[in-house]
Nucleic acid binder design. Structure first.
Lengths: 158, 158
DNA sequence: ACACTGGCTAAGGCAGGCAGAAGTCAGCTA
DNA sequence: TAGCTGACTTCTGCCTGCCTTAGCCAGTGT
């Protein structure tokens, strides 16, 4: 009963290859900092304005400015000008499809923290609006089976 | 068609509360660094020895030592002495249940990178050993519906 | 007795994440 | 015209992550 995956084909043994194109590493190049991921959390909560990001994430304004700029450059957020009647032009940051697609990462982190780092199972709950059932993140195969890490084979693609 | 979740009950409006017990933030306190998550990746690939972690992750030995020590302290890995016949006692690092449970986070990061950061859909593929079907990570509710971030209500627990 | 290997630790230094305080600038409001 | 607000930028400085180089120690092999 191991938790490791099983390497197959050209990937076995592990000592015979380098994880050069590893997309976990590439993803971490984009969102490795705490502030970046917490800004993304806020974006999912509906925050759009500069000051709100800084305050709600609990980071200083210089850091918020730097992180928001990087996230826009990377295409996870987009900055739009908007204008309410009788107001000056303002900016808002909104999730792009690329940014919105990061949601499972945040939920996976939240669920792990709920289970292992909070004595009451976490402060908030996600429910499916249509049916009211709680939402979680899971691994499953295309045939619909729920899968644990120990039941997975890893192969080189293509 | 929004990608944000909908805040409900005491969570609405967002300006009325602080994410103090946020378990995303707590998780990031444990595994916010690139090196920590890549060490966990290697642990899932079956790596157990100090030198192998350092080389395969591509980090220096001092960093590997610091990160492994932290991950053991946090309970994600455990260090065991073992001895092969005719060999001296060695150490190995193995996943604990807490560490193994982090797997969905890594898969979510990998899948996101596969989709958005690699022109060929990622270098490796995960398949369910029993049925040979590809494995992915997804959000779904307890009733089995696949759910997108825009279809989720967030409520305070308890 | 000696070198070798695995698993580290120590010292020095660079780069980047972060905070706090203060300044800038445009445009609306009084 | 003067002030206010939102959205930043600038400056200073700490702290951490990381690198490189070098050294340590225990147990094996020769």
């Amino acid at each position: 009963m191991t938790s490791t995956v099983r390497l197959t084909g050209a990937l076995e043994p592990r000592s015979g290859w380098k994880a050069e194109r590893c997309t976990i590493a590439k993803s971490l190049d984009v969102v490795s900092t705490r502030s970046a991921l917490l800004i993304m959390r806020e974006a999912f909560y509906g925050t759009t304005r500069f000051d709100d990001f800084a305050e709600r994430v609990g980071i200083s304004e210089p850091v918020a400015a730097a992180r928001l700029r990087e996230l826009v450059e990377e295409g996870l957020l987009e900055r739009e000008d908007y204008r309410e009647p009788g107001q000056r032009t303002r900016q808002q940051y909104r999730l792009t499809p690329k940014g919105a697609d990061l949601f499972p990462v945040l939920v996976a982190l939240m669920k792990w923290g709920d289970r292992w780092l909070d004595d009451r199972g976490g402060p908030i709950e996600l429910v499916h609006r249509d049916c009211g059932e709680p939402v979680s993140v899971s691994l499953h195969c295309a045939a619909g089976h729920e899968v644990a890490s120990g039941e997975i084979d890893v192969a080189r693609r293509g």
